[in-house]
Simulated assay, not measured.
Amino acid sequence: MNVLLVDDHAVVRMGLTMLLNSHDDLEVVGEASEGNEGIQKALELNPDVIVMDLSMPHGKDGLSATSELKKLLPEVTILILTMHDDEEYLFRGIQAGASGCILKSAPHHELVTAIRSVAAGDAYLHPSATKRLMEEYMGTIQKGGVDTYSLLSDREKEVLALIAKGFSNKEIAEQLIISVKTVENHKGHVMEKLQMKKRPELVAYALKKGLLGYGI
């Protein structure tokens, strides 16, 4: 798997390069120090996975670069690498189109696992983020009773999965070949049936149901 590293610290990039290149199935094919350079390198190198830092003060930040890359290269896989153990950064990264998020403080083997997971088409969230998502889920969904997922139509389930993966209403409409208004209607029905009010709640629910390809 070819990997592109986007991080403003040269020492971090050097360490990650040595780590990843020590594995037979991984190779760092390029580096960038900020988002704009990362976009340019991605267009040139077409990597399998981009490991993207969020905080890069001397250029385009990681969230903006991720969002732009998903428009230019929809098939690209992006793993957010951040020092911020904050759910706001997690949700914003997912909404921007990232396939996963991992902390810079994570053990080396976890980073390797995360890269392999997102490259295989799965989502990856660091354990503390998963715990918070599940806590929010458990606080939202009533215990017992009818399985609320069974209340959703097939199209509503499709819309739910795409929302949780970070796609905008317009992007969902294009994928499902329906109008944006119809997407909004489906989203409203999903939130009503699941008794939810916020997108993070939908992400937590989708994680529990395995709709992101990452089981809990």
Rank of each mutant, 00 (worst) to 15 (best):
V51W: 03
Y149T: 09
D7S: 03
S22K: 11
L20M: 13
E171P: 00
K170I: 10
V28D: 11
S22P: 04
A42C: 04
L54M: 13
V183K: 07
E201K: 07
T182V: 09
E27S: 12
L194N: 11
L207S: 09
G213C: 11
R116L: 07
P74K: 01
L5M: 05
E171F: 00
T82V: 06
L133S: 10
A120Y: 03
V159F: 08
V6I: 14
L73Q: 01
K165Q: 15
V203H: 05
A98I: 06
G166N: 09
K165V: 02
D48Q: 11
A123L: 02
G59C: 03
L211P: 08
I216G: 12
M196G: 02
R92Y: 00
G215V: 09
H108D: 15
D86V: 05
S153Q: 11
L125P: 04
I80P: 08
H189R: 15
L43Q: 12
I39M: 02
H108C: 07
T82F: 05
L19F: 05
V76W: 01
T17R: 15
A161C: 11
G139C: 07
V51C: 13
S99C: 08
N169H: 08
L4M: 04
A106L: 06
D86Y: 03
G15T: 08
P57E: 04
K71E: 08
I172F: 03
K41W: 00
R92S: 11
K198S: 07
D53A: 06
G215W: 05
E31R: 05
L16W: 06
G15M: 10
